[in-house]
Design a protein around this nucleic acid. Sequence first.
RNA 1: GGCUCGAUAGCUCAGUUGGUAGAGCAGCGGAUUGAAAAUCCGCGUGUCGCUGGUUCGAUCCCGGCUCGAGCCA
Length: 293
Amino acid sequence: MNSQACENRGTCPAAFYICGPTASGKTALALQRARELDGEIVNADAFQLYRGLEIVSAAPSSEERAIVPHHLFGVLAPTDSSDAGSYLRLAKPVIEEIQSRGKTPIVTGGSGLYLKFLTHGPAPLPTGDAKLRSELDAQPLDELVAQLAALDPEEHGRTALQNRRFVSRALEICLLTGEKASTLRDQWESKTAEISASLRGIVIQRTRPDLHARIAKRTRQMLNGGAIGEVAAIGEISANCEKAIGFREIRSFIAGEIDRATCEELINAATRQYAKRQETWFRREQWLVEMRL
RNA sequence: GGCUCGAUAGCUCAGUUGGUAGAGCAGCGGAUUGAAAAUCCGCGUGUCGCUGGUUCGAUCCCGGCUCGAGCCA
């Protein structure tokens, strides 16, 4: 089906995207497609970018990586931070390089925002500023909301004002650029539809009971397969990297705060919730072809 | 065997001086362009153990039964 998608595009080798919720089987499918298409796999998972979290982030094994070329796995140190913009800067040259050799990049991952940047390009917005963010974090939410209302009434009107992250980001854009966040965002919005029309990819779908069973099985394999040692071995870690599902729970288990069964269930619940958010995200990406497994 | 306590949502529990019930967690739906495995919004999903009785009306009061915990034997 993707070879056909490729021909339709007329500019083979295009990139092919494999998306879907965590534990849905993206890694296995990517391997299969890569062999069929003589392709190479490019990571689009925010946490598989990190080194030292291979087990917790369910990164492809070294055996799997040996089958076809894999890119952007374990390229960041645990002390590094990442965001959608830096991912785009990392991934774009890699993808172009693969294409230049006549191979098809099989971009695989479940980080919706990262994929969005890759497929639809960055908005003309500034990178997050750590110093400004910590200043904004120190202020009460209603003050941030009031500031946003004053600087950019339109953005204020369409932002979820209970969401501190969204409010501070909107404010950050205004303060950093001296322009209105609403205007800058509109510039990006207007061009996304035509971009979507040129993209080819699939989103894996599974029934909830199936997905939940797969999550439970994978969590158990992780815990039995070295995840605890992996977390114990990690030294310094950035606040960004620390947010990997499983990391905090396993640390808590190692510290004796929770027992192993609780640790396992907490990881399962967090993973199920994440998977649900991913499904909601990808449901909106209408260019993705649904693939029921 | 006797006595006491408990039995309410998937789980842990609250509650109704008798008018068919609500929290947390789980779950479900959604938002989401630079922290995104993040952050935020919405939704209660129920034979109130079973069975008789009292009552206009019982999840609540009374009797019996079942199961569980504890105490005494």
